[in-house]
Amino acid sequence: MIETALIIETVVKAVIALAVIAGMAGFATFLERKVLAFMQRRLGPMHVGPYGLLQLAADGIKLFTKEDIIPQNVVKPIFVIAPIIGAVSAFVAIAAVPYFPQFTVFGYTIHPIISDINVGLLFIMGAASVGMYGPLLAGLSSHNKWSLLGGARAVIQLLSFEVVSGLSILAPLMMIGSLSLIDINDYQIGGFSSWLVWKQPLAFVLFAIAGFAETNRTPFDLVEFEAEIVSGYATEYSGMRWGLFFIGEYANMITISALVSIIFMGGYNPLWIIPGAIMMLVKVSFWIFLFLWVRAAWPHVRPDQLMWVCWKVLMPLALINILITGIVLV
């Protein structure tokens, strides 16, 4: 019976997480347009509903009812499955993220994490890297040169920034001694001064940069940069298939925001009188805002600049950081 209860609980949690994250991802697209508009002294969407709030629903209806076009000469099964891989892996990664501290409802303790595996952090990074297969497969199967270039860029981006994010996170992990995100959170239980940012500022910056690259956000959005390769891997996509890529990208943004908040910024520990759950929401919202802010403020980098900064600047810095951390710990 215990097994059945566990399975029911897990399914309920998974459905809730899926619904909430998908909803948040949709809302983030609206926020993105509003924030960008604010920074460029425009109004953004204003016509549908109060402050254009219903624009979200309008976009959703448009995406769902649009004609589903599969162009000639594409490799159909791969073309169809690519956006699904992008979205699904983003949601699989969410399974190991603890968003809130545990709480009790009707005498039943709930851990707000779908599966607390021992190696949660590695699992999230692995699942997120599988997500890059979405753009790659889309690019290869589309029979379109822009898409192919987008796919090629997805490969170089993943292979290089996987190294930076892995190495940068190694230094804080050496201090904590566990890959479980709950342990990482508990390590910073002492409040503001025990946040890992203060002990590992370099690792924090490196991981944040790698996060921008892995979610294809603006300074590193080579995979779908309009001025160079039309829409990159998504050139041939329309309607809901394109929407799935979009949802996957925003879900990845939320995951990276939660990861940075948990690893470096104290996680869901309460701060002063503010409860942990609210702290977590504030931090994740701040990081989402930062993603949008950077998009408004920074130009796009060229692929060769990206490779240069990855292999000649970020990777040596990450290695030096690990070395220094090791010496200090020993």
Binding site: S129, V130, M132, Y133, L136, V155, L158, L159
Partner: peptide, 8 residues
């Protein structure tokens, strides 16, 4: 994932 990405 990384290895097969290189094969791609």
């Amino acid at each position: 994932t990384g290895a097969i990405m290189a094969v791609y």
